[in-house]
Design a binder for these strands. Structure first.
Lengths: 344, 344
DNA sequence: CTGTTAGCGCCTTCAC
DNA sequence: GTGAAGGCGCTAACAG
């Protein structure tokens, strides 16, 4: 890159202030043992020259940057956004760390894994004191610095993680639907490699079992937590010879896809089809109709993960277990009692 | 930070492969002039040791990181998300740069400015080859590396920028409302320091003038592009002795706030109040009712800004002007002809 | 084709 | 209280 003006370095500051480089460094780091007048003099010069120390150099030397990294599967996803915002919230409270977000979305599983690993490698032991990875496609990372995972991979045992009461939430949603009299309840899954997805499916299954309903393979569609896939698989569900009267989607984005597919098929929600989501992303309250969903405090997950990470950074040790956050059913207007169906 | 395992460096790789450090470096950077066998040997060792080069060190030395930075006013905002996604899209196409996002949201203007400047300083000339700043509170930055601005500050002449046809869009929206017979049209503004905000207000004013309507100060409320403020100021508008029959909000988030305030006041949309937004964020199609709004291809703004930035990085020069993207009215279901009002 | 040398900007001993 | 010297991990000449 062509670079016309050269950056002002600690050296320039030292020269301009007539002191040594190390003195400037001391001032920068608020060390004691600097004469008050020297301190102010240096600060003045720093201000005048508009000097800011180089993250790269600082990091290289001291291995401490006060920056934490966040790796997301898709930066444009509402879930990710809430996580970010929660992490950001803690960091603002602490007012000590800066946040760098790294995006690695890719439709192809394998590419997403590679990208995630690259992100982690790029930050790890370099510009970042620790990393939070959200809903990773990859099970393991070649990391050295502290790492916390939100919504962990099924096969990731080695890191502290933050996860929701997915089973309880999915169970509650399914119970709600059966209590409304629904007997054919479709399910649209999430990314199968994630614990959240596995647990939600189990909650759905158990909810069915509780009222003596069998698990019908036709009614269970795969998914990947995207609206797109929710839409496509809802079409399959609605095209069944005996379509469901309700659909439980593994997250709100999928649920939105379900609603679209239903509307296109000429079905009214909730009169003709009940829909439940999972996540309670802020938008879900503004869907039409407002979506009944399972709330997991996504923002809080980010907040908690950041807390864990910072403990990990400062104390160097932390139990490698999943920290769990509660979920709760939020009833809005996308479900209705089922009348036009068989009572077995 | 306590660090138990020490990181594997280029040195370790060299030693393990029985070559010199510079040879490893050549392999890393795909230089020519490396014997194929040496090349493979080194690559093997790299793989075996799980080595990845340190961004910090690389950056310090070569001033070239292949990372570009994005500074957002609020990372959790739908507009920001679309920008990110657009930037991300170009970078994926190029498959050469990585993206780092930096968030600096703060409700207080002054703090936001400081934070933005800190973000820029942190990345500038250090871990980043160039920076994109979105809707800055600050007018200027102490930057050295290439910088592009999306939705520039009113007083920012010194950088290339990306902006929409805000005036044309706002004019079209206002004309649409007047063509529906509305004569009392409320307006809720955006962040006043931004060009976008200034231009939209002008479009609104001109739209009124075209049909001989005066600008009524009561009908023009300040704003800041947030739902919250949209909500609050819509309440003021609706509480007027002679409330408006339509509200044009400077962005979709504000428009959502307007809808909430209207609903709370017992007004139906569009029967009792027409609402128009600006942005066409994806969610706006799912609002209830679906929002009529002015589309600016936000995603494309990010894409274009990234293109500009990369040209700037590689060619070192670029005209410091605003690159403009078109806008277009998207009619959905939040507006209706005005009957119950005076025909002057 | 490969090794040696010299820093990038900063922080940290260690002297004074 | 302050300066000098060394090195963090890497790349870019320059020799061979």
């Amino acid at each position: 890159m062509r670079r016309t003006k050269t950056n002002v370095t600690i050296h320039d500051v030292a020269q301009a202030a007539g002191v040594s480089v190390s003195t400037v460094s001391r001032v920068l780091n608020n060390k004691v043992d600097v004469a008050p007048e020297t301190f102010h003099l240096v600060q003045d010069v720093i201000g005048k020259l508009g000097y800011t120390s180089s993250l790269a150099a600082r990091s290289l030397r001291s291995h401490r940057t006060n920056v934490i990294g966040l790796v997301l599967f898709d930066i444009a996803d509402a879930f990710s956004v809430q996580i970010m915002s929660g992490v950001d919230r803690l960091l603002k409270e602490l007012n000590l760390y800066d946040l760098i977000v790294y995006s690695g979305v890719d439709s192809k599983r394998k590419l997403a894994e590679d990208r995630e690993r690259r992100c982690v490698a790029l930050m790890d032991n370099s510009i970042t004191d620790g990393i939070i990875v959200v809903a990773p496609s990859a099970a393991t990372f070649a990391n050295i610095s502290p790492l916390v995972i939100i919504d962990p991979h099924n096969d990731t045992p080695g890191y502290p993680g933050v996860i929701s009461e997915n089973h309880a939430g999915a169970l509650a949603a399914t119970q709600y639907l059966t209590s409304l009299g629904h007997r054919r309840i479709g399910y649209i899954g999430g990314r199968p490699e994630l614990q959240s997805s596995t647990q939600r499916l189990q909650g759905y299954t158990d909810g069915l079992t509780q009222v003596g309903l069998p698990l019908e393979p036709d009614l269970v569609q795969a998914g990947d937590y995207t609206r797109q896939t929710g839409y496509l698989n809802a079409q399959k569900l609605l095209g069944l010879p005996k379509p469901p009267t309700a659909v439980f989607a593994a997250n709100d984005a999928s649920a939105l896809g379900v609603m679209e597919a239903a509307r296109e098929a000429g079905l009214r929600i909730p009169e003709d089809l009940s829909v439940v989501g999972f996540d309670n992303i802020p938008e879900s309250a503004y869907f039409y109709p407002p979506l009944t969903t399972v709330d997991q405090s996504i923002n809080q997950m980010g907040y908690l993960a950041a807390q864990l990470l910072i403990r990990l950074i400062n104390e160097g040790e932390l139990e490698n277990r999943n920290y769990t956050l509660p979920t709760r059913l939020v009833v809005r207007e996308s479900c209705m009692a089922n009348h036009n169906n068989s009572q077995p």
